[in-house]
Structure formats: C-alpha cells, structure tokens
C-alpha cells in the first residue's frame, strides 16, 4: 500500500492558455479509497496519467511513499508503474487470441518478472474474480467476464495502488455493480490504495472519499461520514 502526496501540480499543454490540470496540494493516505468524478474535459484522465506516471506534469511533485515519480525517466516510470500500480481501464485492453490466464500474465511476462509463483497467483486471482476457466479465449467472453480478467491482471503483481479508469462505464448495471464490489473488496483485502475515476454513482457511493474536478481544478473534496 502506498500513500500519495501531490504538490504544486500543473499540467500545461501547448496552445492552451490555462493549465489542463492545476492541483496545489492533495494528500491520500495509504490504503485509502478515492473516487474522482467530474464532467468530460475536467482533467480526470490527465490526473490519472500524472499519478500513474504515464505523463510527467509540467510542474510539481508526485510523491508516492517518498518517491517523486515526476523526476524519474520514462523507463524508470514504466518499471515503477508495472511494479506498483494495478491499472483497470474502461476498454479492458485485453488481447484477443490469448486465454484469460495468458492475458493476466502478459504484462508481467513481457516485463520478464513472471515466475512459477506468479503463474499460480494468476490462477488464484482468476478464481477469485469468479472465472472458472483460465484457459478460455478472451474473445469468447462476455464484457463482464473480460473486465474480471482485467481486474485479475491489475492485481497480479500485488500493487500498492489500484487505479481504475471508468471501470464500470462499458458494463451493464449488474456487471458494473459486481466489478465495483470486486475492486473495493480486493483493495480492502490487499490493503491497496484504490483510486477510481467514475461517473457511476453506485461505485462513487461505495468509496469513502470523493473528489470532484472541473476545468482542471478540484472543486470538491468530500468525505461523507456515512460510508
């Protein structure tokens, strides 16, 4: 589990006068659960890109457990992200032609960190997300099943942080609720910090802290007690 501290973050894109993202300060303790919402273009994706190290902010520090990943090289950020962040994306980004198990293991294999223990863990995770056939080809699965595979893939390397970008947006209500419950449950179980970008009130409602963005700025940072 990792804690996050953002300081003086600004993301300026060429040709735009105002920064796409401007966050003077944000603290997130290890093991916290955070929902980020806001209208389209409000900077949610940019914020996710910055905190996962996919993009380097124009200014500011992105400190995860004392490491400012904004100072790391691109290769080092890739390695850091691979080891510390479990990413779940709206479009799953699974690879057809491979089985569920192969999909779960693919990033780890390409990063040359998959060993026998990790393969065993991949099988356990698939069972845990409710998939009984690890050898099933991905293209023969339903969307709900696909997102389960993506969740298992995100958790494979025991990440300290799970970042889910609109994880339920392309699923029906039943599957969306199931995936939301799965993410929250697994994050609690592993103690991982969970950051979910979402429009889904059901998912937002289950996370203790809610951040609202508009025009690249935090407009609300709530922690309702009834959670």
């Amino acid at each position: 589990m990792l804690s996050l501290r953002l300081t003086g973050i600004e993301m300026v894109f060429p040709g735009l006068d105002t920064p796409a993202l401007s966050i003077p300060a944000l603290d997130l303790p290890a093991g916290a659960g955070l929902a980020i919402s806001g209208p389209s273009g409000s900077g949610k994706s940019t914020l996710v890109n910055v905190i996962t190290g996919l993009e380097r902010p124009t200014r500011g520090k992105v400190v995860w457990n004392g490491i400012d990943i904004a100072t790391l090289s691109e290769g080092a950020r890739d390695r850091w992200r691979g080891a510390n962040i479990g990413l779940v994306m709206q479009d799953f980004h699974l690879f057809p032609g491979l089985s569920a198990l192969e999909n779960v293991l693919l990033p780890a294999r390409l990063a040359r960190v998959a060993d026998a223990a990790m393969i065993a863990r991949a099988r356990d995770l698939l069972a845990e997300v409710g998939l009984a056939r690890p050898g099933q080809r991905i293209e023969t699965m339903s969307r709900g099943e696909m997102q389960r595979v993506a969740v298992a893939r995100a958790l494979l390397r025991r990440p300290g942080v799970i970042v889910a970008d609109e994880p339920t947006a392309s699923l029906d209500a039943v599957n969306g609720a199931a995936i939301g419950a799965l993410l929250i449950g697994l994050a609690r179980q592993t103690g991982a910090t969970l950051i979910a970008v979402s429009h889904d009130p059901a998912l937002i409602g289950r996370l203790p802290r809610r951040l609202t963005l508009a025009a690249g700025r935090i407009t609300a940072d709530q922690m309702p007690e009834t959670c």
Binding site: T52, L54, E74, G75, D78, R79, R81, G82, A83, I85, L87, M89, H93, F95, L106, P107, L110, A111, R112, R153, R157
Partner: peptide
Amino acid sequence: RRQIGALRALGVPSPAI
C-alpha cells in the same frame, strides 16, 4: 497503436515493446 499503448500503461518496458 492502442495495443502498444495499453502494454506500456500496464508497465511493459519500451525495449520489450
């Protein structure tokens, strides 16, 4: 492009790509 982007986002190093 999307495949490669996804692999990178999932932490696959660029030499592997």
